[in-house]
């Protein structure tokens, strides 16, 4: 019982961390900052999934975390590969 409350509290805490990270997406100022925040969501999301797996007694959620961890870097890779060369973030420094 105590443990269940603790785990849900921890999950809630991590979700709040994730939401706080959204501020960086809005502020930028460069696209690299935003991508970095997305990477942070990945790591935090894996943590939340692992905690919820324990709290809800659903072992399958660890597989979800596994898939997230495996593919977390992909969006960043696509980002770096698709950049229109350097200077793509010009004109939005005030973001």
């Amino acid at each position: 019982m105590v443990m269940s409350v603790f785990l849900y509290g921890l999950a809630l805490f991590l979700i709040l961390n994730l939401i706080a990270g959204l501020v960086r997406v809005l502020r930028g100022p460069t696209d690299a900052d935003r991508m970095l925040a997305a990477q942070l969501f990945g790591t935090t999301g894996v943590g939340i999934l692992l905690v919820l797996a324990e709290a809800q007694g659903l072992a399958a959620l660890r597989d979800v975390a596994l898939v997230f961890a495996l593919l977390a870097a992909l969006a960043t890779v696509a980002f770096v590969r698709a950049r229109r060369g350097p200077g793509s973030s010009e004109g939005e420094a005030g973001g």
């Binding site: 460069t30 991508m35 692992l50 961890a69 890779v77 010009e90």
Partner: peptide
Amino acid sequence: LLFIWFLALAGSATACQLIANASVDDDVT
């Protein structure tokens, strides 16, 4: 769990190196 951690480490290390490269390019420009 350790396997998941290892995957997260590999992914985030690579992603951050890529972002670092990209941001250095920005600075140069």
